[in-house]
Design a protein around this nucleic acid. Structure first.
Length: 365
DNA sequence: GATACGTGGTG
DNA sequence: TCACCAAGTAT
């Protein structure tokens, strides 16, 4: 781990401190000048002046940011913090309201675990988040990354935070060619050995910001990097090919049928999907199974018409081509599955994206 | 360790 | 069009 290059070229090393401290300090200097302003972030100057982050906002942002970009998260973060300003407010919310508010953001298990976690904090911890890595890790939806991030950012504990950005930065800094996920423990050890005791919260955010804005997956901007002089991949010219990753499987294509039934008073036939599995707990159109050759499964007796075209959508591990069928039914006909939702209560924004696409196709948009 | 789990942006 | 990628977790 103690690469000679780490110490040979940095001022702190020359002044007698270990090279790793020099690297952390260089990065914090960079962060003080280049930290992005984000709705959940306390700017470095304010942090140094003693302003503390709200653990609820840190936790909420970190859950939303899992596998999700900053621009996608921003409006959802504003919506959640406006509607539920504290963890106790969130804990008291209805499941359906939270799932509807999360609709469109993806990875819906996050929303289910978000509520479980808020309720655990409210009922088992008096509405206060546990202030330790282990305590945080024990909560639903909080894994090693998020426990470290909240510990560091909210409580300024010297936790090592390893996300995709940090993996990439470490792989390049040390010119590590072992492919992910095999390299994860190695990269984690590298990250741990760099984590400073001073300002761990700012440092955690700084490494991730570096990865997000300078040490990017494609076209890294090495000319602006505070760690360029210490970067082994820069020396070797291998930045563009790191980190190595084991190749992913091709996605198969599945087919399905979505049934959009409208009652004469304008109500729509919807159903809440089972808690487990794909789109678990979300509102959606009744439908067939998604497979090579789906079987008809109309949720109500009616004269169904097939909408021309298909709704196409790609999930994490397969492509979906959805045939959309519509019908109009009388007021007194009971459905075999699902529940009619009054027209003035129904908002397509409450649906996951694939279901919105089916709705758009049916409406001719 | 491998797999399931969303979505939108990008080259 | 298409594969890759993003502040991962649960099983």
């Amino acid at each position: 781990m103690s690469d000679a290059r780490d110490t040979s070229c940095d001022p702190a090393g020359a002044s007698g401190q270990p090279g790793r401290v020099g690297l952390a300090s260089d990065l914090l200097d960079w962060y003080d000048r280049h930290a992005r302003a984000l709705p959940w972030r306390i700017p470095p100057l304010a942090r140094v002046a003693g302003v503390k982050p709200d653990p609820y906002r840190v936790w909420l942002s970190e859950i939303m940011l899992q596998q999700t970009t900053v621009p996608a998260v921003k409006p959802y973060f504003e919506k959640f913090t406006t509607r539920w300003p504290t963890v106790s407010d969130l804990a008291a919310a209805e499941d359906a309201d939270v799932m509807a508010a999360w609709a469109g953001l993806g990875y819906y298990a996050r929303a289910r675990n978000l509520l479980k976690c808020a309720r655990a904090v409210a009922s088992d911890h008096g509405g206060i988040f546990p202030q330790s890595y282990e305590g945080l890790l024990s909560l639903p939806g909080i894994g090693p990354y998020t426990a470290g991030a909240v510990a560091a950012i909210a409580f300024d504990l010297p936790a090592t935070v390893v996300d995709g950005n940090v993996e990439r930065v470490m792989a390049r800094l040390h010119d590590e060619h072992t492919p992910l996920p095999e390299a994860k423990p190695i990269l984690t050890e590298m990250a741990a050995s760099l984590t400073p005791q001073a300002r761990p919260g700012d440092y955690a955010q700084a490494v991730m910001d570096l990865g997000a804005t300078v040490c990017t997956p494609r076209n890294p901007v090495c000319g602006l990097c505070p760690w360029r002089r210490s970067c082994a991949a820069w020396d070797a010219g291998t930045m563009a090919e790191l980190p190595k990753k084991t190749p992913k499987k091709r996605k198969p294509t599945r087919h399905g049928i979505a049934y959009l039934a409208r009652r004469i008073d304008g109500a729509w036939l919807l159903e809440t999907r089972p808690e487990k599995g794909l789109l678990g707990g979300m509102l959606g159109w009744p439908g067939s199974e998604w497979s090579d050759d789906p079987q008809e499964a109309p949720p109500i007796r009616a004269e169904w018409k097939t909408v021309p075209g298909e709704a196409r959508h790609t999930f994490t591990h397969f492509h979906l081509r959805l045939t959309v069928k519509t019908c109009l039914v009388p007021f007194d006909r009971p459905p075999e599955r699902g529940t009619f939702v009054e027209a003035d209560t129904f908002d397509p924004e409450d649906l996951p994206t694939v279901m919105r696409k089916a709705f758009s196709l049916a409406r001719g948009g």
